[in-house]
Amino acid sequence: MSTPLEKLFTEAKTENRALLIGYLPAGFPTQKKAKKIIKAMVSGGVDAIEIGYPYSDPVMDGPVIQAASDEAIKNGAGVAEVFELLQTSVELGVPSVIMSYWSPIEKYGATEFAREVAKRGGSGVITPDLTFEESDRWRLESTQNSLNRIYVVAPSSTKDRLSKVANECTGFVYAASLMGVTGTRSLVSANAKQLVERIRSVSNTPIAVGLGVSNKEQAKEVAVFADGVIVGSAFIKVVQEFGAGRTGLKKVKQLAESLSEGVRSARKI
């Protein structure tokens, strides 16, 4: 049985377009505001949502997401907020996944975590620091609960490794566009394109590109060759600058609209 996320990728393929995937840490800047931000993202045209589990030691993340995670944790965000925001997002009608470092999942219990994600209607979990070798348990739990298992691959991955990890993924393969941590970048696409081509040669699973995409032009460029475009830090920056009041939410929606336009116009002639 396919997850809502898988169905959406199939639909997008028939429409010949890439998906826009938005990221927000649970409880950022507060849980109440996070719910409104997600709503603004979705009403601006974001197709799918990643709820970040704010973690104390996010080694994959740059300063923007680190600061957002710290703020969320300070404001009390924990596992309850992660599941609650996941449910909020699902109820808005968009396929939603959790992105979490392994420590919080292991502490909660992989079995219980997988069950709860499924119960809340989540499509899957992105695990940025769970390696193929350590995945036996998660493979079992995610399969039993019909969840997508999404791993992050990088430009440094060897062909052999790329094939192993990509074939472990369901839903989509998360392609890190560059060697580095999350954050907005001025240049994205050259490395990303090459990586996407390398993944395509070993796997048929949809590929979404993350790390560095922050504006319409970049989203458009990436959407030409990828099946999904992931944007996180750019949304967070807007909230950090304008807050999550009326102005901030309007700006979030505008960014989503602009990125969505980029994604939707990429393959039109």
């Binding site: 390696t131 070798e133 990088a154 440094s156 890190a176």
Partner: peptide, 20 residues
């Protein structure tokens, strides 16, 4: 092979570091 000490050790890192 995997750098495990009983249930401990192993690798929990971004894929970008595996090659290194």
């Amino acid at each position: 092979v995997l750098g495990h000490f009983g249930p401990y050790g192993g690798r929990f890192v971004p894929e970008a570091l595996i090659a290194a």
